[in-house]
Each structure stands twice: as structure tokens, then as C-alpha cells.
């Protein structure tokens, strides 16, 4: 049975969260475990992965792990930091800017030390969360991305509608 994947249309939450979610789903497509067939669901009204009536996932983190078939590292300091410190900031309406800088810098110093393959789901989730919060800081550290990540970034940018505040007049 094939998997149906619906991207985040960005309703009711921030542009940063939408981008992080869609980057994780785009990364899932790039790093899918062998033999995985994914169909894009354009009718679903929210981010989700379904497999018939057997499975429905609404967390981009869990979807990435499932498609990669990588459930390792969920008890690691990196994953705790990535979810509780980075991702939770994406849900805040106006988090303090200096706090975001500190968290992303800490992620870059302690966890995002390399993007060399083979990459784990935990590392990709940290990358997606940090990139969504402070793309400039992350891009400065990784000016050259592995091809699969670069492709996912391009796809995620196309899929994540920008809000009006991001347009420069």
C-alpha cells in the first residue's frame, strides 16, 4: 500500500513552522527508505501522512522518521534540544530574537557539526528546525549542502507560502 503525503499549507501558524514542516517532508522524500512509494495528497487540508486506514501521522518529525525508517536518537540530548528548545520556538508568536540566536548557535556548535552522509532523522530534524529559525546562521556554516538536502530545501521553499511581512517593497 502506498503512502499519501500532504504538505503543510501554512494555515493558522507561522511561516517558519510551515517551512520547517515542509522541509522535513521534502527531506523524507529524499531520504526515503528503499522501496517506499509516496504519493502526494493535494486534497488533504492539513499536513499528514496516511497509509490507507492503518496509519495517520500529523507530526512532521514522526513522518520523517517513519519514511526514513529511522527511530534512533529519540532519547538523545540533540533530539531533546531540537524539539524542546528549537521547534517549540517555532510555535511562539513572537519569541525573543536574541534567544533564537542563542539556541541556533548552540545547535550549530554542539549538534549540527556536520551534514555528511549517512544522516540520521534526528540530525535532519535539528537541521530543519535551526534553518527555519535562523536560515542565515545555518547557511553561513553550511554554504555547500549535500545534493539531497539542497533539493529538499528548494522543494520546501516552493511549498511554503510566504506571508506578506516577508516581502520587501
Amino acid at each position: 500500500m502506498s503512502l499519501k503525503l500532504a504538505f503543510d499549507s501554512g494555515k493558522n501558524h507561522s511561516q517558519g513552522l510551515t517551512y520547517a514542516n515542509n522541509l522535513k517532508l521534502a527531506l523524507a522524500q529524499q531520504f526515503a527508505s528503499k522501496g517506499t512509494k509516496i504519493e502526494i495528497d493535494t486534497e488533504a487540508r492539513q499536513l499528514q501522512l496516511t497509509k490507507g486506514d492503518n496509519l495517520r501521522l500529523v507530526s512532521a518529525d514522526a513522518i520523517l522518521r517513519y519514511i526514513m525508517n529511522d527511530f534512533s536518537g529519540q532519547d538523545s540530548d540533540e533530539y531533546d534540544f531540537s524539539l524542546a528548545s528549537l521547534e517549540s520556538l517555532l510555535y511562539h508568536t513572537s519569541p525573543p530574537s536574541n534567544h533564537i540566536d542563542q539556541c541556533v548557535e548552540k545547535a550549530l556548535d554542539n549538534y549540527l557539526t556536520s551534514l555528511s552522509e549517512p544522516l540520521t532523522a534526528t540530525r535532519l530534524i535539528t537541521y530543519a528546525n535551526a534553518s527555519a529559525l535562523r536560515p542565515a546562521l545555518v547557511n553561513a556554516k553550511f554554504p555547500e549542502l549535500p545534493k539531497s538536502i539542497a533539493t529538499a530545501v528548494t522543494d520546501a521553499l516552493k511549498l511554503s507560502p510566504r506571508d506578506t511581512s516577508s516581502f520587501k517593497h
Binding site: T36, L55, R65, Y66, F71, A84, S88
Partner: peptide
């Protein structure tokens, strides 16, 4: 691919990001 592990990963992620209240309808 494990559906069981995926569900566990989902609910752990939701709890760790402090989004359980928002996901009560899903629960």
C-alpha cells in the same frame, strides 16, 4: 517500517514541543 514506532515518535514529539493541548482532537 514500523507504524507502532511512528505513533510513539509522533506523541513524544508533540509532548516535547509543548503542543499536546493543540493536538487533543487528534489524540
Amino acid at each position: 517500517m514500523s507504524e507502532v514506532e511512528a505513533q510513539i515518535a509522533q506523541w513524544r514529539a508533540i509532548v516535547k514541543t509543548g503542543q499536546l493541548k493543540e493536538n487533543l482532537p487528534e489524540l
